[in-house]
Amino acid sequence: MATYPSTANSRALPPGGRARSFLRRGQVGEDVAYLVTLVAAATIFLITSLIFYELFVQSAVSRQKFGFHFLFTQTWDPIAGNFGALPFIYGTVVTAALSLLIAIPQGLGSAIFLAELAPRRVSDSLTFLIELLAAVPSVIYGLLGIFILVPFLQARVVPVLKAVFGFLPIFQGVFYGVSYFSAGVVLSVMIMPFIVSVSREVLLAVPKDQREASLALGGSRWQTTWHVVVPYALKGIMGSIFLALARALGETMAVTMVIGNTPQIKASLLAPGYSIAAVIANEFTEAVGSLYISSLIELGLVLFVVTFIINGLARLMIMAASRGGAHS
């Protein structure tokens, strides 16, 4: 908080005496300003709490009927009234994991280049461009996914993957285009800017003496980067990865457009699947009956809780990194 001298008589205004001083002459403007900003701040807290409360209350029907089985059941049958979240949880986890698998090496590589090798000016402008990637609306990623990426994967990438890794179960089966694989690739592009820009910042904040110490011992620049700079910044980098993960888990539109929207669990990445956010987006407006709606809301609750935890971890790591001095 920015500090101010109190403008009231210091003797007559004991600590915590704000409420009592309300309507004191000359203090009215002061108190109104305080109250207005306090109410706004409290509203933020209330909205956040209300989101959790609503998800919890509105999912009561489904929670009471299915209990924890909801999370481990494979069936999603609106007609029979049987709802299980497993195919969606599976699809969400698989696509997010795949996106991290692609985005971490590429993102970290870019961050290292931008922080360690590129001159500061070049690095700043390139980073600005990469951050623009984060500004591209997700529905546009979906659009590109459907019309560009999927045909490209089908024509160029998947045949090669099958030829080389076809013995692995994750690359077997027919590829229709829409799939876990496509969704994971689109997500990787979407989360890349988060990893690059946060990691670059953390790397830049590593003190110069750390680098000098390693160079003075005869380390090459790459050895210095890989064995000294990156480990020093690791907590911050992990934080950026968790932020990206939370984003990938909650991403709706792009995934909905390329995942195939089929509630099944398949080992093959080339098979169509479904994600939590996608099923909510597709079925919420059409859902009839309180059990169906309530089940969809419970999926929202699951998503909320998971992203809450992941974001919390990301914050903890970035906080720890800044406390350790690795991140300014």
Binding site: I51, I280, F284, L296, I297
Partner: peptide, 25 residues
């Protein structure tokens, strides 16, 4: 701390979830 935490949390809520809650409210 409380307000900042609530703000970060709100920032992390997936947008589809905001849609659900505004629907119910």
């Amino acid at each position: 701390f409380v307000i900042r935490y609530a703000t970060d949390l709100l920032n992390g809520v997936p947008s589809i979830v905001i849609g659900i809650v505004v629907y119910t409210l």
